[in-house]
């Protein structure tokens, strides 16, 4: 009892640690550049975070269920390339569902390997990161994909449109966050995801079909990737094969920043949204400071390490310990 209280305090401190660091960044950026908190810039940050955010929503399910998904970046490239290619071949009405079906198949394959065959998710999805990249290149023949008639299609609405003055990518992100947030928090499926990630054996002993839940989490993740790919394709109307490269780490950073434990069993959609925004604002702030784009990679890594450290610190109630 007493020690739990201590851990709770540690947990609170750890979570505040991220928020404090975030606040320091925000104040620093605002002082350094008065554009940082302007409405335009804020909207811009949220808008540019939307694709990452949509992917992070799906990965939140996977992480809470106690697994990882490192394949989302290259899977997003795949979705983008496929939908752009099919757009000109069969038209957007058919291209979109066809792309969703193909992306879900990839998710189902990963879900089968991790859920039913019980293979390690790190290995499976790391391998899929590379395999799907190869698949994409095979599909495209290594060529960039472009929509021929960019003016004559309504396809741009997902990435470029806006409603009520709000860009459509933001609306999609928020609507999807609301939907998935409710699924995770309010449905039996959501509860089972927490149980499987919290203690998979106990979940099995409670009659939960663990493999099925893990499988469905990867389906959720791939569905989110398909949405992200759709937004990406629609925004640019053309794409390289590597458009999603490296996003898997940003996505994971956002999910962990939000406070989901890599050990599974904890985290929420709301927290992930917060994590996405924190990451978005920090990366944007660094750009405004005039730092090179690739410095972001380093900073993202530092943020992941910081978040993981605080996550562990929260569990043991102090920042440093001789005992693991």
């Amino acid at each position: 009892m007493a020690s739990m209280t201590k851990a709770d305090i540690g947990g609170m401190l750890a979570r505040q640690g991220i928020l404090i660091a975030f606040a320091v960044f925000i104040i620093g950026f605002t002082i350094a550049n008065d554009r940082f908190l302007s409405p335009d810039n804020v909207m811009g940050v949220i808008r540019s975070s939307a694709i990452l955010g949509v992917m992070a929503l799906g990965v939140t399910f996977v992480v809470i269920s106690g697994n990882l998904d490192l394949s989302v970046g290259s899977m997003m490239s795949f979705s983008t390339i496929v939908v752009l290619d099919l757009h000109d071949k069969i038209g957007p009405f058919l291209a979109i569902p066809a792309m969703f079906a193909m992306t879900l198949c990839l998710g189902a394959f990963i879900g089968f390997l991790v859920g039913y065959l019980k293979l390690n998710s790190l290995i499976v999805t790391l391998g899929m990161l590379s395999a799907i990249h190869g698949l994409t290149l095979t599909y495209s023949g290594g060529q960039n994909m472009d929509i021929a008639d960019k003016e004559g299609t309504w396809f741009g609405v997902f990435g470029q449109g806006s409603a009520l003055g709000i860009p459509v990518p933001i609306l999609i992100f928020l609507a999807l966050a609301a939907l998935l947030g409710i699924i995770l928090a309010k449905t039996a499926f959501g509860r089972k995801v927490y149980a499987v990630g919290g203690n998979g054996t106990a979940a099995t002993f409670s009659g939960i079909k663990r493999a099925r839940i893990v499988f469905l989490c990867y389906i959720m993740s791939s569905a989110c990737v398909a949405v992200a790919g759709l937004i990406q394709a629609s925004r640019s109307m053309g794409s390289q094969n590597t458009v999603g490269q490296g996003l898997e780490l940003d996505v994971l950073a956002a999910v962990i920043l939000g406070g989901a434990s890599l050990l599974g069993g904890s985290g929420t959609i709301f927290k992930t949204v917060i994590g996405v925004l924190i990451l978005g604002f920090i990366q944007n702030g660094l750009l405004l400071l005039g730092l090179q784009f690739y410095v972001q990679n380093v900073v993202t890594w530092v943020i992941i390490i910081l978040a993981v450290w605080l996550d562990i610190a929260a569990k043991r109630g102090k920042l440093w310990s001789n005992i693991a």
Binding site: K186, R191, K192, Y194, A195, N199, A203, F205, I208, G265
Partner: peptide, 26 residues
């Protein structure tokens, strides 16, 4: 037996959470 990080109620209703729904929600 238990998901230790979960609350008391959710642990107790875990095997039947699928049957305790009104509409899509628990």
């Amino acid at each position: 037996g238990l998901v230790l990080g979960m609350n008391c109620r959710d642990n107790m209703t875990l095997p039947q959470v699928g049957n305790l729904s009104s509409g899509p929600f628990v």
